[in-house]
Design a protein around this nucleic acid. Structure first.
Length: 304
DNA sequence: GTCCAGGATACTG
DNA sequence: CAGTATCATGGA
């Protein structure tokens, strides 16, 4: 249906490996090297199949092949899909700076080599990015996925194709009208339920908008605007800036996964202190988000 | 049983 | 102010 050129230093397989890290994921399916994902574009629900074909010659692999298995996208919708995928795989980033930085750093160098072509796998939708981060606060990822699954299957939209179900994450419009108890039933804490509904309401009124955040000149201002939201602390703000707002310097320094990854990579007995991390990260300046993402990736090595 | 998870906030001294 | 309790549950 459509092809998208990809930049140098892009590995679809590496990105797919990251997307496949949880078998509890409800928002996409990975099968035979292709990504299947439902997406709502201009009011219509589509089912996309995204592949990176193994071609006759190597040059052909620098394209993503997009098929639409359900729905009939117009030309405008195709444009939106391209924008979406560019954000999903961070396709507009020139990674040479990161690899140059990694080359100079003992922690990043082996990771940059091992996962070459991995790009930050984004969450283009602001509501999803914010609330997924909130859901994940302080609990294990697997429990977070359980909650996301319940949340999505309860309040999201569904598309069935070839006997398989594909889910859309709940919209802020839907969630804005929920009560705390609706989410408590899904084992949200009272606080988390309040936070998630609060974010939905702020987006429903237009007070909170992705474009508005992206218009801010200073990333510090963006960070401040995010932490002003109830339930959003420094970690969540940086997570969202990294996964949704494409800020390559965003750095969720308090992240437990980051700590564990560093502990393993450095062969430490204990997790490094925040001061140690800050010191290490001086060399990552400008590429903290990528450093973090590659470190996260290193946690799934035992997982093919 | 205990402790820690992709933290953030409300409460206490 | 800094320090502490609290949250809900699963897995190690």
């Amino acid at each position: 249906m459509m092809e998208i050129a990809v930049p140098d230093c892009f590995s679809f397989d590496e990105c797919l490996r990251f997307l496949g890290r949880s078998d509890q994921e409800v928002l996409h399916r990975i099968e035979n090297g292709s990504l299947y994902k439902a997406l709502k574009v201009r009011g219509e629900v589509l089912l996309l199949k995204i592949s990176c074909g193994q071609p006759e010659n190597r040059r052909m692999s620098h394209q993503l092949q997009i098929e639409c298995l359900a729905g009939t996208p117009t030309a405008d919708m195709l444009t939106d899909i391209k924008v979406y995928l560019a954000q999903l795989f961070d396709l507009n980033r020139d990674l040479r700076g990161f690899y140059k930085t990694a080359e100079q750093d003992d922690v990043l160098r082996p990771l940059a080599m091992r996962y070459r072509g991995l790009r930050i796998v984004g969450i283009p939708d602001l509501f999803e990015a914010l609330t997924w981060a909130i859901i994940g606060q302080q609990i294990t990822l697997s429990f977070a996925y359980t909650m996301k699954k319940r949340f999505t299957e309860q309040f999201g939209e569904k598309l069935t194709f070839a006997d398989k179900r594909y889910w859309l994450y709940p919209t802020f419009q839907t969630v804005a009208s929920l009560q705390v108890d609706d989410l408590r039933e899904l084992q949200f804490t009272t606080r988390k339920a309040e936070y998630v509904i609060g974010v939905a309401k702020a987006m429903a009124t237009g007070e909170l908008k992705k474009e508005k955040l992206l218009d801010m000149r200073e990333s510090q201002q963006m960070h401040q605007a995010l932490t002003a939201i109830r339930g959003v602390g420094a970690w969540t703000a940086d997570y969202v800036m990294m996964k949704c707002l494409q800020q390559k310097s965003a750095f969720p320094i308090a992240d437990v996964g980051l700590h564990n990854a560093l502990k393993i990579q450095l062969g430490l007995k204990e997790k490094p202190s925040q001061a140690q991390i800050r010191q290490m990260a001086v060399k990552w300046e400008g590429w903290e988000a990528y450093a973090t993402f590659y470190l996260w990736r290193s946690l799934y090595d035992d997982f093919t």
